[in-house]
């Protein structure tokens, strides 16, 4: 098996949290992982992405070849489109609906939705409300991870286990909040 995932968002949105949880789950399953991330200048409110590759055999390239991503997991709708050249013909976009407008020329929201709908398989997630329902807006990313869980190539149980390990140092309440957020995400699709 091999899964190629682009995680997309804006610097400061915490896309690396999602990446870290998937990495952890993959490692706990004994799978190979490669995960390229953006540090430096772009982290200052610019577009950022992570290339995450999971496989049961050797992974050479740290970057996903164009047309080979099975999943674009976006924390921001416009950002899901920025990496479209990487999406496989039968790949899926799972994106949060809430736009992050830190630029003056942010496009029309409906037009963005229409573009995403035209790409093929896609899921919109009202992550903000679901995170609120889980108990904290900070669980936004875990909601998104839940919504994309069917397309990662790792079981939901394994992902939940990784969430537990990832947040364990922050206490049981944070673990439970994130498990709840993850389950709300999985139930939303």
């Amino acid at each position: 098996m091999q899964t190629n995932i682009i995680i997309a968002g804006v610097g400061g949105q915490g896309i690396l949290t999602i990446a870290s949880i998937i990495d952890l789950a993959a490692m706990q399953q004994g799978l190979q992982v490669k995960q390229a991330e953006v540090h430096g200048m772009s982290q200052r409110g610019g577009a950022v992405e992570s290339h995450l590759r999971i496989s049961d055999s050797v992974i050479y390239s740290d970057l996903i070849p164009k047309g080979k991503a099975n999943l674009i997991l976006a924390i921001e709708p416009m950002e899901s489109l920025r990496y479209l050249p990487f999406l496989a013909p039968d790949g899926i976009i799972v994106t949060a609906t809430e736009p992050f407008k830190n630029i003056n020329n942010y496009p029309d929201e409906q037009a963005i939705k229409d573009e995403i709908a035209q790409t093929g398989k896609h899921i919109f997630v009202d992550a903000e409300n679901l995170a609120r329902e889980a108990g904290n807006l900070k669980a936004f990313n875990t909601v998104m991870l839940g919504a994309a869980a069917n397309y990662i190539g790792i079981s939901k149980e394994a992902l939940e286990k990784a969430i537990e390990s990832y947040f364990s140092s922050k206490g049981e309440a944070v673990v439970q909040l994130n498990i709840k957020a993850f389950r709300l995400g999985t139930a939303a699709i």
Binding site: A47, K66, M78, L81, R82, L84, P85, L87, D108
Partner: peptide
């Protein structure tokens, strides 16, 4: 691979 970035996508510099 033949998908392209839709023209609607605006740049988001740091």
């Amino acid at each position: 691979a033949n998908r392209t970035i839709p023209s609607i996508v605006a740049g988001r510099p740091p």
